[in-house]
Design a protein around this nucleic acid. Structure first.
Lengths: 198, 198
DNA sequence: TGTAAAGTTGACATCGTGTCAATTGGTTGG
DNA sequence: CCAACCAATTGACACGATGTCAACTTTACA
């Protein structure tokens, strides 16, 4: 569909990414993005019908650029649930800072914009699948605690290892990324994995 | 400063509370609140300089009406950290659904409104104090795990048992309030309390 | 009776999103 | 070469929400 040097569309997406990364949340306006992309405000609407669509496209763009699918792969390689869970937690946790700015803007838009709500729900569903696979593996190994059903275990993981939690602990509280990952891995293991041997 | 039957100011606060409870987030406008309070939109500004101030006042109003301070007291009565932590988690967790709507609106405003940011930070600081006291008690008893510093333990509690987490698990995932509380208590205990006897 | 407080109405400024119409400049193809 | 097309520009405007202002009314109360 395209292959100029940097397409205008790509310049817009990149500009949106950079601006939102620098100032996550609602502070970034369409005119800011346009200016950063070197075009007029109205021209942005030639490529994206609305702000929500731009944000959604930006998350997809980031996924491509950062090869999110490749990064999530290692966890799929793990055979046991005990290996798979921490692997997926690490992979997803390392993706969070990349999408943080855009995700936050999308989350903020959810309240008022239906399209944004659906888009973010879609992304959450994708992450959920990863956790589901890990939990299912645990279950098959007989390593899933009896304290939580499979669904509840996934609910908990999706909630605990989230953009919101990540922002609170790293951005607000100043934890390092490594501390965050280690803490979440330990939390998940202690809570969901049956004490068992080895 | 006043004692009519229901003061107009109170009617506004109550209306804001009810509307935000029914539809948490950004969907509630000043005109909606005015209508629900039975006055004109402009009259609201006779009582609150701006939307942010109204929301802040609403949280204080809810605190009073629900006697939040009294409800948080039981945890202060507990002598040991092992008792105090779950008591405080329960008390705070049971306060969350009451402030949920208003809190969400305030959180949403944070991004753009400085006053809202400060106001919400203040409330978080108050909750943090509760967790700090519990963690300090654990530490004194020698029951705090070595895996986390006191500060980190508090960071974690404040992040895990938050309005955001509560909304995700109960509103989004459908957990009951009891399940939420029990799960958070178990999570906190397993993560922060040294295995110890009894 | 007269004044002050509280509220009403209508108009208006501001800001951000989104739309539209008219115009320009460059590229490609018949 | 000229026409058609495409991306983009400029300027204007509608809309919805917040917040402001001025002028008028109502009620209380002293």
């Amino acid at each position: 569909m395209s292959s100029e040097n940097p397409t205008t569309r790509e310049r817009i997406l990149k500009a949106a990414w950079q601006l939102l990364e620098a100032d996550p949340g609602g502070g970034v306006r369409m005119s800011d993005i346009a200016k950063a992309a070197g075009i007029s405000r109205q021209a942005v609407y030639l490529h994206f019908p609305a702000r929500a669509d731009l944000l959604v496209a930006a998350t997809r763009y980031i996924d491509e650029v950062t090869e999110a699918d490749v990064r999530l792969a290692p966890s799929r390689a793990a055979k046991t649930g005990r290996e798979r869970l921490p692997a997926y937690i690490e992979a997803w946790s390392n993706h969070i800072p990349e999408i943080h700015g855009v995700a936050k803007a999308l989350i903020a838009m959810q309240e008022t914009d239906e399209a944004a709500r659906v888009a973010w729900a879609d992304r959450l569903a994708a992450i959920r699948h990863g956790f589901e696979a890990a939990v299912r593996a645990l279950k098959l190994d007989g390593d899933l605690t009896l304290d939580y059903s499979e669904t509840e275990a996934v609910d908990l993981l999706l909630t605990l290892i989230s953009v919101e939690t990540w922002e609170s602990l790293t951005v607000q509280c100043g934890w390092t990324q490594e501390r965050f990952i280690a803490s979440m891995q330990a939390l998940a293991a202690q809570t969901l994995i049956v004490p068992g041997k080895e």
